[in-house]
C-alpha cells in the first residue's frame, strides 16, 4: 500500500515539502474506503440523531400517551402496534434510543475515565503504584462481573449525593461504569509500559517535561486509538447489559428503555403479542451490528501494525 507517510529524502538535498498526513487522517481515508463501515456509521448517526431529537423534546415526547386500544397489532396507524396501556410501541422504541444511548455513553465515559488514568499510571510509574493498581483490578476481575454490577446497582439505588438521589439512570450507568474499567486498564497499562522506554519519551524527559505532561501530552495520544476501539465495543456491551438489568428490575425507573420493553413483553409472546419484543430487539440488533462492523473497520484503520 502507498499510505506510508513519505519522508523527504535528505541525501538528495532539499526535497520538495511533503504535506504530512496524520494517523487520524490516514485512518479516516482507510475507513471511508469500506462500504460496510460507512453504512454502519450512517446507522449509528441515525440513532444518535434520534436520541438527540428525543432529548430536545422534538420526538416521541408523547410516548406515554394512550393512542388506541391495548395490544393492537401493527397497522398503518401504529407501525409497531400498541402495548398493554395502549401506548404506541414505535414512540416507545424511539424514546428508548435516548435512554439506552445515554446509559451506554455515560457508563463508557466513566469506565474510560477510570481505566485510562489508572492504566497509564500503573504502566508509567511501575513499582508500588503498579502493584496496587494490578492488585485492585485482579480482585475485581476475580469477582463474577454480573454479580458485581448487580451489587453496585443495588447499593447505588439507595445512595444520595449532595441531595441528589442516584435512583434510576445514574445508578445504572454508575454500576456499569464503575465495574467495567478493568479490561481497559489492563490494556492501557500494557501499552504504556511499552511506550515508557521509547526514545520520544526519553527525549521529552530530557527536555524537562513534567511527568504529568509526558503522560498526558506524549503517551496518552499514542494509545488513543485503543481507547476508541474499546469504546465502540464497550458501548454495545452496555446496551446489552441494560437489558439484563431491566429484566432483574434494576433498569431505568421512569423512562422507557429497550430492556424494559423486552422485559414487559416476556409474558406477552405466548399470547401472540410479538411486536413490542420485536421492535425492541430490532432496535438493539441494528445498532449492535453497526457498532460491531464499525469497530472492526476502526481497528483495521487505526492499528498501525496492520498497515502494510
Amino acid at each position: 500500500m502507498t499510505t506510508v507517510p513519505t519522508q523527504p529524502d535528505l541525501a538528495d538535498g532539499p526535497a520538495e515539502v511533503v504535506k504530512g498526513r496524520s494517523l487520524w487522517h490516514d485512518a479516516w481515508r482507510r475507513f471511508r474506503r469500506k462500504k460496510m463501515a460507512m453504512i454502519s456509521l450512517a446507522v449509528i448517526v441515525v440513532y444518535v440523531i434520534v436520541a438527540l431529537l428525543v432529548a430536545t423534546g422534538l420526538l416521541a415526547g408523547d410516548w406515554n400517551e394512550e393512542v388506541g386500544p391495548r395490544y393492537q397489532a401493527p397497522s398503518a396507524d401504529h407501525w409497531f402496534g400498541t402495548d398493554i396501556f395502549g401506548r404506541s410501541t414505535l414512540r416507545m422504541t424511539l424514546y428508548s434510543a435516548k435512554t439506552s444511548l445515554t446509559v451506554a455513553l455515560f457508563a463508557s465515559v466513566i469506565s474510560i475515565c477510570i481505566g485510562v488514568p489508572m492504566g497509564a499510571m500503573a504502566g508509567y510509574f511501575g513499582g508500588k503504584v503498579d502493584e496496587f493498581i494490578v492488585w485492585l483490578y485482579s480482585v475485581l476481575a476475580s469477582i463474577p462481573g454480573l454479580l458485581l454490577i448487580l451489587a453496585f446497582a443495588f447499593v447505588l439505588r439507595d445512595v444520595t449525593v449532595f441531595g441528589y438521589s442516584l435512583q434510576g439512570m445514574p445508578a445504572i450507568y454508575l454500576a456499569l461504569g464503575l465495574t467495567g474499567w478493568v479490561y481497559l486498564c489492563r490494556l492501557i497499562r500494557g501499552e504504556v509500559m511499552k511506550h515508557r522506554s521509547r526514545d520520544y519519551v526519553t527525549a521529552a524527559r530530557s527536555y524537562g517535561c513534567s511527568q504529568k505532561r509526558i503522560i498526558l501530552k506524549h503517551i496518552v495520544p499514542n494509545v488513543t486509538h485503543l481507547i476508541l476501539i474499546d469504546f465502540s465495543l464497550r458501548f454495545v456491551g452496555y446496551i446489552h447489559a441494560e437489558v439484563i438489568l431491566s429484566y432483574l428490575g434494576l433498569g431505568p425507573v421512569k423512562d422507557p428503555s429497550w430492556g424494559k420493553m423486552i422485559d414487559a413483553a416476556k409474558l406477552e409472546l405466548q399470547r401472540g403479542h410479538w411486536w413490542e419484543l420485536t421492535a425492541a430487539t430490532l432496535a438493539i440488533f441494528f445498532i449492535s451490528v453497526a457498532l460491531n462492523i464499525a469497530s472492526d473497520a476502526l481497528r483495521d484503520a487505526l492499528d498501525p501494525k496492520l498497515k502494510t
Binding site: H240, V243, I262, L277, T281, I284, F285, F286, S288, V289
Partner: peptide
Amino acid sequence: GMSIPFLA
C-alpha cells in the same frame, strides 16, 4: 448472532 439480545 452477537447482536441479538440474549433475553430475546
